[in-house]
Write a protein that binds this DNA or RNA. Structure first.
Lengths: 146, 146
DNA sequence: CGTGAAAAGAGTTACCT
DNA sequence: AGGTAACTCTTTTCACG
């Protein structure tokens, strides 16, 4: 993971469809050398997957919020986790040490969608004791990784 | 944005390097038809960018935390925002309505790196009045978008 | 929206520095 | 480790049905 690898990674982060020949010009290396480095980045797990960044707004999701969830410790956590992970609106679910037990990042179409999620979807999941919602007014930065 | 578009989008989310011919087989459409749909998804902004998902752990970042930041209202917010956005460790920065003013998603190499970030990097930014850190124990789900 | 052909560009390999 | 060159395969693009 030298400097060249970092440049290659940042090029792919900007455009994962960049060809090896395009990249080779930017890093002053031959095509096979670039191909080999990318292959190693994939094998070592640095490159997890080639993906697409979709715009939630263009898809009708205009509201973003983080939800801090407190869970009743007496309940089976796996059921809670499976239920949460199955909700497509829930982009992220982290087990946390802090004011709550879980932190969710959730997209909503509108306020009503959010209300519905908080007062129905979430409360219907066994184990959810309390929720605390942080509404996002605007997003200044949103990267997948370093 | 019909069902076919959704399938195409989900295929690209799984592998953004999938060729139009590969996709065409999965959606039972011709190659030019798929190409045209993808072009429209790009133009309409649904597809924001083709990117790579890098594994933070493979890059030495083993600690993830969310930091709730309270800002002194009397200070110029732009300076704060620019300073924050310039930090590569800060993956996300949201302006929020809630217990704090900003919510940051930050990667750390280790505990010392986190301590350094909280007690130096952050405190040195003008306007930061108070911080509250939520440490992630584990991550169950982490998607970019719906 | 499908088909088919033509052209361009991709990746791969082997060999050499 | 990296460069060069040739070969092969795939992809994309275009004109037409």
């Amino acid at each position: 993971m030298d400097n060249t690898d970092n440049i290659i990674l940042s090029i792919l982060k900007e455009n994962s469809r960049a060809s090896a020949s395009e990249i080779s010009k930017q890093v002053n290396l031959s095509v096979p050398a670039v191909t080999e480095r990318i292959r190693k980045l994939e094998l070592s797990g640095v490159i997890e997957k080639y993906t697409v960044r979709a715009n939630p707004y263009a898809l009708g999701y205009n509201l973003l919020a983080f939800v801090i969830v407190k869970v009743d410790c007496s309940v089976n956590l796996e059921a809670f986790q499976d239920a949460i992970a199955g909700l497509p609106q829930v982009l992220e679910c982290h087990h946390t040490a802090g004011p709550g037990d879980y932190l969710l990042k959730v997209l909503f179409r509108d306020m009503q969608d959010m209300e519905n999620f908080l007062s129905r979807t979430l409360k219907d999941i066994r184990g959810v004791a309390d929720t605390n919602t942080i509404i996002c007014l605007s997003t200044l930065k949103e990267e997948i990784t370093v």
